[in-house]
Write a protein that binds this DNA or RNA. Structure first.
Lengths: 113, 113
DNA sequence: CCGCATCCATTTTGATACTG
DNA sequence: CAGTATCAAAATGGATGCGG
């Protein structure tokens, strides 16, 4: 994968443990455009992480599913998600401290009266 | 981390097991602009993954080092890197198949003579 | 040496309209 | 329903010049 793409892992996590139709993915993610979802799925399919099954019915139906390789990618994505969840509070606190410190002088010479 | 940034993990991996100066990082990475490196380091510092130590000498010197949280991030980055290395060949093969199949008709009716 | 500010090229994304 | 095409908007990244 040369360029993961902003939505790649989100899509992979949506495919956790079940086959999904295009519109199900779209609704499940919520704020992704049709175009971006299409591109993301194409890249995942191209790299062998997702399989695509077309049912030539009317209306058409397309199912997406993780391949074995895709399942491995899901494990990594989960690792990342768990890390983010575990440390969300610590990161927010660090960020808050940093933003506060930015407004203050490097060395405080006198205490404010 | 709301937005990881293209170079974030590269920088973290450069900080594996040792403190680094700004210019050392720049040379070690090789193809990153000063601006982008500065921004990447600031974000990492802001979120508590990297600590920054300023030596007010002339010329100035600034050291960067992973915090405990940063070390955890490094583990994740390594996991990703190992996954990519393990599956590089498989992904390239899948990509090649996909690109070839794109040019062919969906159903081959007759064999070429 | 370190890093900020500005400008500019490239990339990425979304909105919209249209097709099978 | 599941895309494709096109255009405009926004984010990103690099180059350059300046400053502590």
């Amino acid at each position: 994968m040369v360029k993961p793409g902003k939505w790649t892992l989100v899509v992979v996590m949506q495919l956790r443990s079940e086959t999904r139709r295009f519109s199900e993915l779209r609704r499940g993610i919520g704020d992704i455009s049709q175009k971006t979802l299409t591109i993301t799925l194409r890249e995942l399919e191209r790299d062998g992480f997702v399989s695509r099954t077309i049912f030539p019915t009317i209306p058409p139906r397309v199912d997406y599913e993780l391949t074995a390789l895709g399942q491995e990618l899901l494990q990594l994505a989960d690792g990342w998600r768990q890390f983010a969840a575990r440390n969300r509070v610590a990161v927010e606190a660090a960020r808050h401290r940093f933003d506060l410190a930015a407004g203050e002088p490097a060395i405080r010479l006198v205490s404010s009266s």
